[in-house]
Amino acid sequence: MKSLLSLLAMVLLASTALAIDADEPLEDPELQARYEKLIEEIRCLKCQNATIKDSPAFLATDLRKEIKRMLVEGYTDDQILDFMVERYGDFALYSPRARGKTLVVWIVPAVFLLLGGLFLANIVRRRMKMPIHDEPDSGS
């Protein structure tokens, strides 16, 4: 039991050690919740494959600070995301806005899913028409 408890304590402590954002949380828990969602949505342009939540780069730190300030000042989530896109471009968001050039990344997967579905349906339909043999397929 004791070893289990110490294991639990280790796991819990490890997660706090991993958090890069060491700043004080916002006083309003509702704002803090929105803040935590936003920083997972915005890319750190300095490191490009990390969100500003996960990046220790000073740019990410500055952007987190900026987001906190905007939240306290009453900006909406959309306004904050727009603020980022206006400055750093569509790449700044992990889910880019579906407009203009970025429409491609939303449409292409759907097209491939549709094509794959049609392909699969075609195979299934053909196989359903095949007679059922007990012996191995003779290779028609």
């Binding site: 342009l45 300095k46 000073f58 740019l59 500055d62 952007l63 900026e66 400055r87 750093y88 471009g89």
Partner: peptide
């Protein structure tokens, strides 16, 4: 020094 103007200019490196 604070990098605030850098943010407005979209500076990242």
């Amino acid at each position: 020094g604070s990098g605030r103007v850098g943010i407005d200019w979209g500076v990242y490196g």
